[in-house]
Design a protein around this nucleic acid. Sequence first.
DNA 1: AGGGACTGACTGAATGTTCAGTCTAGAAAC
DNA 2: GTTTCTAGACTGAACATTCAGTCAGTCCCT
Lengths: 213, 213
Amino acid sequence: MEERAGSAGGMAGQRREKLLHAAVEIIVERGYADTRIADVAKRAGTSQALVIYYFETRDQLLTEALRYVEDRWYAIATRRMEAIDTSAGRLEEFIALMCLPEPGDEPEDSWLLYLDLWAQSPRNPAVAAIRQKIDDHSRETIRSLVLAGQAAGEFAAVDADDFAVTLSALLYGFVVPIALEDLATGPTQAFELSMEYVSGRLGFPWNRRRARN
Amino acid sequence: MEERAGSAGGMAGQRREKLLHAAVEIIVERGYADTRIADVAKRAGTSQALVIYYFETRDQLLTEALRYVEDRWYAIATRRMEAIDTSAGRLEEFIALMCLPEPGDEPEDSWLLYLDLWAQSPRNPAVAAIRQKIDDHSRETIRSLVLAGQAAGEFAAVDADDFAVTLSALLYGFVVPIALEDLATGPTQAFELSMEYVSGRLGFPWNRRRARN
DNA sequence: AGGGACTGACTGAATGTTCAGTCTAGAAAC
DNA sequence: GTTTCTAGACTGAACATTCAGTCAGTCCCT
């Protein structure tokens, strides 16, 4: 153990984040319902009691872990999209982020987390709130992208709300087979079919390029 | 390890089905992971030991319950679709069955089951197989409907496979908010947006009617 | 009588949470 | 500058409960 814990804030904050990171890993491996405090503690190299010391209850640990993932995902997504200047390009990036797993992905980016998120939602209000926020965020991202693209003359005049609801559903529908590695609907196919729908509906040109390393 | 207990006998068969029915109810109420043998036994009015007597393990009980639901759903769907004579009408019925919950619905028709099905799939091969079968079945249903409609001149010439994959994803994407009663994407909206996509893509006329008794 | 359907009582293995402290770093007191 | 004190970080060991699965035996039909 190199570091001593004393200094207020700094050390404790790091410890907290390490626990969250460990929790996410275990959730992906064992599933939300089968994630034990003991597993998380062992993965983080500490005691069970410490986990409770930081999070009070198992439930709070797990829900905070989900929030942690969600916040990180959108932070990355926002940064990546802002680096692109056309609405069509941004929308394509958004779709790629959802459909195409990337080589250096952390386990915490696994879509498996979303399946657990959905399954826990009906009986866990805290989880349900996280899911609602993610879904709203997704729809709003698409909606504002469409409006911006229409204002810039890139996109045809479709109802932005209806389009957002539909595309969001389509993408989450693809999340299931992608997360479960269903051979019948691979990431590339999901990406291309999504782009075909989007470009067709919004009336901008798009052709299968992007080998996505 | 022989055959399952009394799969042929009258009384035993009924008992078995009652247990499955109870299991489905409990899964919908408490969630797959939190479904206890004791809950199922109590709901069915028998003892825990009897449940094990019929199903050997908790896992077999739960996976068989999922199979039971799936079989019943498709039996009903097939019957309903066969009562309609146009491909467009059949497709509409299929979409309605997926999007619009009906008044007299048994709890076992709840889409909540699907969320659990997906969440269990990554770590439970038996569940994964059921999910795969359901998904394949869904895609194949759509695909053959499209081919039939094209042969009859009802539908435009789209790639039936791509269309099936896309529509299947869209519908399952709508299943999430419908099951979770997300106000942002209600059943009626999901149905109408799905039909708009389908009619637009396949090139047949459709207008918002159907009050769905 | 015999066999299948069925049960109450039990067990052993988890597992979330509590608890009674230990240890350390720095502040306060001297 | 040394000692004392304090608060927070952290832990090992229990505790209390929950559950899947076992077992010895009962009931009932033929």
